[in-house]
Computed example of a mutant assay.
Amino acid sequence: MSSATARIDLNADLGEGVGDDAAMLGIVTSANVACGFHAGTPADLLATCRAAVAAGVRIGAQVSYPDRSGFGRRFMEMTTSDLIADLVYQIGALDALARSVGGAVTYVKPHGALYNTVVHHAQQADAVVTAVRNVHPGLAVMGLPGSEILSRASRAGLDTITEAFADRAYTPEGTLVPRGTNGAVLSDSDEIARRVVELVTTGRIGAIDGTRIGVDARSVCLHGDTPGAVEHARAVRAALTAAGIDIGTTPA
């Protein structure tokens, strides 16, 4: 695509009780709001939804394993019925909070270990898709391009939102380099911004081994809980604007 016609959504994980949510809501166009299972209290989530509505930012349910002590970053074996019930509960609760302040949940994004698991794990990917469809078939699912979750969501008739990550390194296979690995999380704002502009304008990004890989993304995640997160996000938005790229939610 050319930069003259490119358009990209910017999203961030909010309502987790870490980072500067108010600043991020002035930068992003989509908010992945925690649902209480890995972080966030009902009062915090309500306040986050209210602030997102005031900022004109769309709301997504950031669903997780029931793992507050591990911030949702530990894999959990769960039966299909238990996982579906947990996810329906989270989506429904956040949607009720959002509707009470004039908003609504419009998409679902798994968090942390669940996000990485449903890239390849068929049983849990099916559970997420079933939960989303059971709550409302008009909800979209956000995830990694080429993942099991997005393939199964598409087959189930759900809209999908392909996502890339501004501050995470990629493997040559197009998956994220695991946290804890040297170089997995990027820290230079200029480099992060340059990578995002390249991604949006060319559909390619550099992998950790130096190769360039294709990444089809309708949205870019700007993590709000890493050191320098707000500065990274501002640099990304400024670089996109300077390149003539529209920032906002994209149609299916």
Rank of each mutant, 00 (worst) to 15 (best):
A47L: 07
L25P: 01
A125T: 09
G180V: 13
A93Y: 03
E77H: 13
P172R: 13
D209A: 06
L25W: 05
A113T: 12
A184N: 10
A23W: 07
A166C: 09
D209L: 08
V135L: 04
A239R: 05
L87T: 04
G112R: 03
C221D: 02
P66E: 13
R155A: 15
G183L: 09
R50A: 15
Q124C: 09
G248C: 12
R74H: 13
G146C: 06
G224Y: 00
T29S: 15
V105I: 10
T160H: 03
D67K: 10
E163R: 08
D20P: 05
A96R: 12
V118P: 01
G102A: 12
S219I: 04
L45F: 00
R155W: 02
D126H: 15
A131D: 07
H38T: 05
I8T: 04
A54L: 07
T249Q: 13
V101Q: 06
S30V: 06
A169N: 09
V220P: 00
V220E: 04
G157I: 13
A233H: 04
D13C: 07
M24H: 02
G143F: 05
F71C: 04
E191M: 08
G157S: 10
G112W: 01
G143M: 04
S69D: 14
T160I: 12
Y115L: 10
A184D: 10
S219L: 05
V101W: 06
V230G: 02
V135G: 01
D95V: 00
T5V: 10
L94W: 01
V128R: 05
G146H: 07
V177K: 07
L45M: 15
G206S: 11
I59G: 00
T106W: 01
D44G: 15
T117I: 01
Y107H: 15
A243Q: 08
G174W: 10
V177Q: 08
G244P: 07
S64F: 02
I8N: 04
V57A: 10
A52M: 03
V33I: 15
A166Y: 02
G60V: 01
D86K: 04
V220Y: 00
A98S: 08
V88R: 15
S151K: 14
T211R: 14
G92S: 11
G60Y: 01
D82I: 10
H232I: 07
G56E: 14
S189A: 15
Y115M: 07
N32G: 08
T41K: 10
G26I: 04
H232M: 14
I91A: 03
D21R: 04
G157A: 12
Y89I: 03
A125F: 11
A238L: 08
G157D: 11
P227D: 12
T241R: 14
T5L: 09
M1L: 13
N32W: 01
D225Q: 12
T241C: 03
S147A: 15
